[in-house]
């Protein structure tokens, strides 16, 4: 039995605006094991991002618990959550969120400077195939390259988990495949537990496991018997 990285139980998130209550999550239970690559699917507003944000320590649930390696994230202080993100979680977002004033290498170094046992920034860039572009500023890189820098930045600290919110959302399929290959490689070579949110159903086949979200709940949780390589995915 693999180690449980995340164990969410009864996760509920309610947003209140004025008198209106919006249920983003309605009691989600989910376990994520070490080394697993999971794809989260579902329509907009189904609660995938809220789930990922809570698991990543960016948001807090209204009710329920998330255990990270047995430690409940609910109840951690702001500072403890920051340290949790710093030490254990890597994020990849749809819009890259690179620091424009830092080169590719420096964007990676930004994270390695504050982590305990990082890999050399150049090595992280090599992992995503960008060793030749390390001295370029974000404005000098294509969207796909920027996203790969973001992945390199996320994995350079050797996080236990990599959380990706629509990592290919802003990319066409050519660049998207390259990004997915990078994610797959990280998952296989470093054993990083990876959760990928996507609207793109085609991507689900590269994962070990696929969860469908709808209306704040998980409506199906299936294991892929066979995985396909990213290069065989098109959209």
């Amino acid at each position: 039995m693999r180690e449980r990285i995340f164990e969410a139980s009864g996760l509920t998130k309610v947003y209140r605006t004025g008198d209106v209550e919006v249920f983003a999550l309605r009691g989600v239970d989910l376990v994520l094991s070490a080394g697993e690559m999971m794809v989260l699917l579902g329509p907009s507003g189904s609660g995938k991002s809220t789930f990922l944000n809570i698991v990543g320590g960016l948001d807090r649930p209204t009710e329920g618990h998330v255990l990270f390696r047995g430690r409940d994230l609910v109840g951690l202080s702001e500072r403890e959550l920051t340290l949790y993100r710093r030490n254990h979680v890597g994020f990849v977002f749809q819009f890259y969120n690179l620091v424009p004033s830092l080169t590719a290498l420096e964007n990676v170094a930004l994270v390695t400077e504050i982590s305990a046992e990082p890999m050399p920034p150049a090595e992280a860039l090599a992992l995503v195939g960008l060793e030749a572009r390390q001295d370029h500023f974000p404005a000098q890189l294509s969207g796909g390259e920027q996203q790969r820098v973001a992945i390199a930045r996320a994995v350079a600290k050797r996080p236990e988990v990599l959380l990706c919110d629509e990592p290919t959302g802003a990319l066409d399929s050519t660049f998207g495949v390259i990004v997915l290959e990078a994610l797959m490689r990280v998952n296989q070579e470093l054993g990083t537990t990876t959760a990928i949110i996507t609207h793109n159903v085609a991507i689900k086949d590269i994962a070990h496991r696929v969860c469908y979200f709808a209306d704040g709940r998980i409506v199906s949780d299936t294991v892929n018997e066979t995985r396909v390589e990213p290069k065989d995915v098109t959209w």
Binding site: R79, T82, R85, R86, V89, L98, V99, P100, I114
Partner: peptide
């Protein structure tokens, strides 16, 4: 704001 918020997400403290 976006850049600074990204830093927070990456694990930088408010002070940093």
């Amino acid at each position: 704001g976006r850049e600074l918020a990204s830093l927070r997400v990456l694990g930088f403290t408010r002070g940093e």
